[in-house]
Amino acid sequence: MIKGIDALMKASDLPDAFTAEPGSTLAFKTGDWRSLRPKLDREKCIYCAFCYIYCPDGVYQDMGKDEKYFKPDLDYCKGCGICAHECPKKCIEMVLEEV
């Protein structure tokens, strides 16, 4: 487990100089910032990788030549909707994140 700055950390438990080990943002899951979630219609998807390229957080993973689609990692997707906007086939819909 990579040590980072955790939410609700006491002042006395913070690391010296407010530092973190490299890659600590992996431990900082931003998925709960999301209010809209991308929903893919795989029937219309042409596996063009626009969502993968345009995603500002790099959360899309290539599912490979057999599956032929890209899947967002919802632990980190902030729900910005850029993938849906850029998709040439309009096969990504932003749906309300149900609590």
Binding site: I5, F18, T19, A20, P22, S24
Partner: peptide, 18 residues
């Protein structure tokens, strides 16, 4: 190590107090 991190509302006050 990473220095100069983001201090969110959950950690900024704690860092100033420290």
């Amino acid at each position: 190590i990473s220095m100069g991190l983001l201090g969110t509302p959950e950690s900024y006050a704690e860092s100033r107090k420290a």
